[in-house]
Simulated scan of single mutants.
Amino acid sequence: MFDTAYAESRYRVPEIPHRYGPGVHLLDDPFAWTLLTRACSPETGQPDMGRLVRMLYENLARVVLAAEFPRARVDVPTRMAAAHPEAVYRGLALSRTTKAVTVGIARAGTMPSQVVFELMNEVLDPALVRQDHLFMSRQTNEAGTVIGATWHDAKIGRDVGDRYVLFPDPMGATGSSMVSAVSYYKNSLEGTPAKCIAMHLIVTPEYIRRVHAEHPDVAIYALRLDRGLSEPAVLRTEPGTRADEEKGLNDRQYIVPGAGGVGEILNNAWV
C-alpha cells in the first residue's frame, strides 16, 4: 500500500521577507544565525572556525538539496520486512540519479565545497557527483577597488550537461568571482547545466545586484544579508524595497558587518 502522506513533498525553505525576487533565498534560521555570529567574532580562530563553517555548510547544503534537487518515488523494504512483508517505505526521496558538481573556489570556498561534496555522496549516486577546483583572486585597481576576478589555475571536469552546479563560497561580496565562475560553466564546457546555485554564509545587496544582472537564472542561497552601511531609513525597510540605496561594502569592497578574512582564518594564512 502507498501512504498518500508521502506522495508529494511540501518542503518550503524558511526565508525572511524580501523583495529581491524568487531567485534569492535568505534563510530564516536562528540556529544558523547563532553559529554564524560566533564565526564572525574577532575572538574566533582555528579550530573553532573550521568546525563552525562545516556545521553551517552542512545545514545550508541540506536546505539547498531538499529545495532544488529532483525527487523520485522509492520503494525500500525496512528491516521489519522479514516479519512483515508490508514493511516497505513507499514515498519520495531525492533522486539518486541526479548529476551534480560542487565547485571549490580557493581559498575560502575549498572546505565548504568538500563538505557539500561529502553530503551529496551520501544521498546521490557517488558516480554522478564531482568536485571541481578553481583558483582565483580579486583584481583591483590602484585605488584598491575590485574591478574583476583573476584566474590562476583550475581543475575542472569537462562535462556539465544536465548537472546541478553548486558554488559554495562563504562571502558573496562584489559578485565578480561568482559571475566569472558561472560564465565559465555556462559557456566554456561541454553541455548546459541543469541549474547553477550559489551558496553563501553572507551576501551583500551589491552582490545580489551584480550576479543577477549577469546571470538572472542563478539561484542565490544565503544565511544572512549584510547591508550595514545603508542609511538608517533604508535599514528600516524590508530588504530589496530600496535596493539601489542598500550598501554592504566599504571602500575596499569588504562586507560590513561581515566576517573579515574568512579564507585567511580558515587556512591560518594571512597573505
Rank of each mutant, 00 (worst) to 15 (best):
A61H: 00
S177L: 04
K99R: 15
P47V: 03
A181G: 06
V165S: 00
Y11H: 09
G50I: 05
Y221D: 01
E15H: 01
P70G: 08
A154F: 13
V103M: 05
K195A: 15
P112Y: 05
P77K: 03
L35T: 08
D251C: 04
S230R: 09
V218Q: 06
L52I: 03
P126H: 03
I147H: 02
I156H: 04
R163L: 07
P239E: 06
V160N: 03
A154Y: 11
M49R: 07
L26P: 06
F31Y: 14
H212T: 13
H18T: 03
S188D: 15
L27E: 03
P14L: 05
L119H: 09
V203G: 05
A198F: 14
R224F: 03
V115H: 08
H84R: 15
R54E: 15
N250E: 01
A243V: 14
G191Q: 06
K155V: 12
V203H: 07
A67Q: 13
C196M: 11
A66D: 14
A269W: 15
G161V: 04
Q139K: 13
L225M: 05
D153T: 10
E264G: 12
P47G: 00
P126S: 01
A127V: 10
D3P: 04
I147K: 11
S9L: 08
M1D: 10
I197P: 08
A181W: 10
L92S: 00
G50P: 06
D125K: 01
R10E: 10
T237Y: 00
D169Q: 07
D162Q: 15
L60N: 02
T37G: 14
M49F: 14
S9M: 08
D75F: 05
V211M: 03
V262Q: 02
Y185I: 11
R12E: 12
Y57I: 09
G21R: 07
R138T: 02
A106P: 04
T174A: 01
A61D: 01
K99I: 05
W151D: 10
T44G: 01
R90D: 00
D226W: 07
P42A: 01
A213D: 12
L52W: 04
G157T: 12
D125L: 01
T110D: 14
S188M: 14
V116H: 01
V203R: 08
H84D: 15
D28C: 09
D226H: 12
P70E: 11
A173M: 08
N250C: 01
P257R: 13
E231P: 05
K155I: 11
V13L: 14
Q131Y: 03
A259Y: 09
A66G: 08
T241V: 13
I202D: 03
H25C: 11
H212W: 10
R210M: 11
A100C: 11
P205C: 09
V203A: 10
P22F: 02
D217I: 12
V63L: 10
N250T: 04
G144C: 11
